[in-house]
Design a protein around this nucleic acid. Sequence first.
DNA 1: GTGAAAGCGCTAACAA
DNA 2: TTGTTAGCGCTTTCAC
Lengths: 358, 358
Amino acid sequence: MATIQDVARLANVSVSSVSNVLNGRTERLNPATFERVREAIRTLGFRPSQVARQLKTGQTPMLGLLVPSTANPMYGQLTLKIEAEAQRQTGYRVLLGNTNRDREQESRMFDDLLSFGVHGVIVVSSLTGEQHFEVATRQGLAMVSYDGGADPDAPARIDHVAPDNFQAGYLAASHLLELGHRRIAFVMPAGRTVSRASKIAGFQAAVKEAGLGDAVVIECSPAAHYGDAELAELGQALAGQLAQTSTRPTGLVAVNDMMAIGLMSGLHQAGLSVPADVSVIGMDDISMCLYTNPALTSVAMPFGEMAQAMVRRVMLRLAQPDEAPIRLCFPSGLVVRQSTAKPPAANRLAGAGAPKRG
Amino acid sequence: MATIQDVARLANVSVSSVSNVLNGRTERLNPATFERVREAIRTLGFRPSQVARQLKTGQTPMLGLLVPSTANPMYGQLTLKIEAEAQRQTGYRVLLGNTNRDREQESRMFDDLLSFGVHGVIVVSSLTGEQHFEVATRQGLAMVSYDGGADPDAPARIDHVAPDNFQAGYLAASHLLELGHRRIAFVMPAGRTVSRASKIAGFQAAVKEAGLGDAVVIECSPAAHYGDAELAELGQALAGQLAQTSTRPTGLVAVNDMMAIGLMSGLHQAGLSVPADVSVIGMDDISMCLYTNPALTSVAMPFGEMAQAMVRRVMLRLAQPDEAPIRLCFPSGLVVRQSTAKPPAANRLAGAGAPKRG
DNA sequence: GTGAAAGCGCTAACAA
DNA sequence: TTGTTAGCGCTTTCAC
């Protein structure tokens, strides 16, 4: 690889002139010199070393991105959008780390980012209140979290970007209630995060509004790996159990689409039909929703806009580290497909025990 | 961030002693000095700058990874495995780029890798015979390709890792033939790559062995973006057309699982049943196969082993750039689930026109 | 408008 | 066994 020295020699100028050309300080250059340098750069195929540049300036056009697992289509999709957005907005590249939502892995990634001189990072994690986040920000990492808990008292200065989870829970429950369901449940893996709590709150609010009191939150076993379609597996197993109970819900709101897909699969295996026997609704609206059988009704989150906001925000924080942290919340929207319908007739009668509306 | 100078000062030694400690050259150190330095490092929370180190040595513990799109679950899964394997084997981090299988994006990523001083790269691309690959390797990139065409005459020195595509095509076709299907087709997006050609060759070989001559290869419209579940969309559209033809195949081999999932979705929407009316088999065996309805029969590729091989190979090539390029081929295996069954009775009779076996 | 030179934080050859 | 120092490729002051 050619160096700035080689270019200077070939163009018969000093390295500082070459540097000025590289950094677009045209006002300081004689147009003729400028052209000569550009010509030399071209003939040598010279590309400035980001490494040397970074050592000098402390800046590098690179962003850290931590996701639980790219094998999960939802994070794979988000990863794509964030990477594209970083390129589009600023030409930054992305250093990727899968964390499995594991504290230790997150922590090691933070350390590595710091030693690579990367100062901006976007994190998908529910652990943002924990100490390793505070340590990392104190050491100079500018962090933006996706769907993390925004504890106002947390010491770490982190920006938060999230979908409106309360609204998502509310929309999902309302949809089922409007279809006539009276026995509905919210399904998720064990463990309450801030975002899950919001979804549940929205779900319960809709249930209350409908004058029902018996909405259930079902927690599966905890998700251990996130390395795969594990949520689907949990949902599948749970659906098998639900199928055997006579008073099972007629409508299920899943914490996300992967779990919903697992639920549908388990219900089918148990000989039940979706939506004839049980309605299922997911959240995130990943592309796979279009191709399940039946196509999955879901609550869509504006990933493109959120990716854009996260990149913009981390850039801003890189430029102005002392900016006060903010929380951005994006509206979600119901997308009705074929996995939700009226409850089976028997249940419409059996629902008489519940208070009537209006 | 503390520097090596700070550590030297605190420990009352020279920077070279600190450097020796950092690089594990314990034999040159007085144990007491060693301890003193380690202590200083700990109290300062010192972490050596990879940037400075890299400027000096030309090495960096980072790998490039180019995939068409992490939004495609297959590549999301592969990305996860490669990243994990890079961490496990050597502690390397991964610089990710989504390319959309676009020449221009690949090329720009190569340039950026070079200017970041990253010399090892794993590429998922069908364009490995093209010029930008040759340019990149000549400029010092050590490349390993996944499922790329291994043209022995290609000038670029690239290692290739791939599943046995011929075998995959053969296994898929054989499975349908053994079930009694006589009218089967291979389905893929327009455009023949080396790996698709191998799958087709395996598919045709099985058809010939069965004494049939009329196996069809169906090319959908070309895939334009890869940014999403586009293959599924193509499959869905195609299935809608197929459903209307009376002489449609009774068994479909899809080039990969996403396309198979799209085909199933389209068939269902057209009122056909899988596998009662049409059998569908995919390739890759992504986790989603377990959760489709019906669960998708597929040909599994050993992604874990292939990821391991790719990382090992790129490390080797980093150490010995002049090593001769090799091609590693990994066996695939049939995984039977519920999307394949005997053809409908009418077709079993209609198949009489085909030559009989034995 | 252009050039000389210091220095970013490390490694490694060489000196002591 | 430990220290001194040049230099990796660039940016940026400051002098001309």
